[in-house]
């Protein structure tokens, strides 16, 4: 599904290398987790994959189902099936959440040559999906993320994911700022989307999220590289001992 090979990335504005040769393959139907200390390059990787400005790829490649991601505009990557749940979802005053969702869904359908969803059809689907995430009619009507609590913003990200039905979902510290109940709700939303044709890459600092979203593979990232890969037990090891032991071991 997602294949990253020897990815090297610099910051555009300053002379600084963030990713120093990332190799990662995520197969369809699997959940991969990436953990790692602050500044190791986890979020940068999610931004580079989704096409944010400000980064320069100096070497390597990233493909989604064999299609080169790095040459595409952000909207083309989204239409190709890539989704990034933001760590800090952006507030957009004056644009209704529903309008935003429908514009996004239909833009992607149009880009894929599918028929656009009618207003009635869309409303039915969105209400259904919102309900399971405990997103009420008021939250759908309000401007995008404006005045939303931390938990509401993250639930709104998952709602977007549910509506857009991407193939490859990247969750960037989706657990940050969430209390236990909210985390459970978000995790349930994610688990409901798990299927054989879809893959997840979960970036997190904490094992706790992985109790709810059970990963198949766990990677440890440090200083711009993936330094260790293992099963779910690797996350437990980090939780108990921190990164020091693992990093010392691979150094």
């Amino acid at each position: 599904m997602l294949e990253i090979k020897n990815l090297h990335v610099d910051l555009e504005e300053e002379d600084k290398t963030i990713l120093k040769g990332v190799n990662l393959t995520v197969e369809a139907g699997t959940v991969h987790a990436i953990m790692g200390p602050n500044g190791s390059g986890k979020s940068t990787m999610s931004y580079v994959l989704s096409g944010r400005d400000g980064y320069k790829v100096t070497n390597g490649s990233a493909t989604l189902d064999g299609v080169d991601l790095l040459g595409m505009e952000p909207e083309e990557r989204a239409a190709a099936g890539l989704f990034l749940a933001f760590q800090y979802p952006v507030e957009i005053p004056g644009v209704g959440n529903m309008t935003f969702l429908r514009t996004a869904v239909n833009a992607q359908r149009k880009a894929r040559g599918q028929e656009e969803m009618s207003a009635a059809e869309f409303l039915k689907v969105v209400r259904d999906k919102a309900k399971t995430l405990q997103i009420d009619a008021d939250m759908l009507k309000r401007p995008v993320n404006v005045g939303f609590s931390g938990g509401e913003k993250k639930r709104n990200e998952i709602l977007q994911m549910a509506m857009l039905e991407p193939k490859m979902c990247i969750l960037d510290e989706t657990d940050s700022g969430l209390d236990v109940d909210a985390m459970k709700l978000v995790a349930d939303g994610v688990n409901a989307l798990r299927d054989a044709g879809r893959a997840f890459l979960v970036i997190t600092h904490y094992q706790r999220l992985l109790d709810h979203i059970k990963p198949d593979v766990v990677h440890i990232m440090s200083d711009g590289r993936i330094v260790k890969t293992g099963g779910p037990e690797l996350a437990l090891e980090v939780e108990q001992n921190g990164y020091a032991d693992i990093l010392a071991e691979v150094a």
């Binding site: 096409g51 952000p74 909207e75 989204a78 644009v95 514009t103 992607q108 880009a111 857009l164």
Partner: peptide, 23 residues
């Protein structure tokens, strides 16, 4: 970037943000 990452083309995203500005 947020809007484009959801698949909304730049031109439409720009219009949405313009309406947001006028709101």
């Amino acid at each position: 970037y947020y809007l484009r990452a959801r698949g909304i083309p730049r031109t439409i995203a720009t219009d949405l943000l313009t309406l947001s500005f006028l709101a």
